[in-house]
């Protein structure tokens, strides 16, 4: 059983329904996808347009050796496959394409 699946009792739960910040990271919305964004590292110019528009915080970024932020991939645990990233990627770059999700 996963940790988050263990349901606490009234005696164990914090009063008032208090939740520690950011626990939704453990909740996977990836299985919602019917379409999967596929990121092409070689085409990507790391303009971060996909990152700023993604509603699901699912564009992975990291600083490179020059401390400049670059895209490093897609967080498939949380990506719901809406396709905004592919749509917003500059047409001349076209680094993200949507493909059918294989179930």
């Amino acid at each position: 059983m996963k940790k988050e699946d263990k349901k606490l009792t009234a005696a164990e739960l914090p009063a008032g329904g208090l939740l520690e910040g950011g626990t939704a990271e453990n909740f996977k919305t990836g299985p919602w996808r019917s379409q999967r964004p596929v990121w092409n590292k070689d085409k990507c110019i790391s303009c971060l347009t996909c990152w700023i528009y993604c509603p699901d915080s699912a564009i992975k970024i990291a600083p490179d050796e020059k401390k400049t932020t670059v895209v490093t991939g897609i967080d498939y645990d949380h990506c719901k496959g809406c396709g905004i990233c592919a749509r917003e990627c500059p047409p001349k770059v076209a680094a993200i394409t949507m493909e059918e999700e294989k179930k």
């Binding site: 950011g22 939704a24 990271e25 453990n26 909740f27 996977k28 919305t29 919602w32 996808r33 509603p55 699901d56 915080s57 699912a58 967080d75 645990d77 949380h78 990506c79 719901k80 496959g81 809406c82 396709g83 905004i84």
Partner: peptide, 12 residues
Amino acid sequence: LTGGHRLCAGCG
């Protein structure tokens, strides 16, 4: 804001 929220795919 983490992922894993339950808004619809593509929600503004």
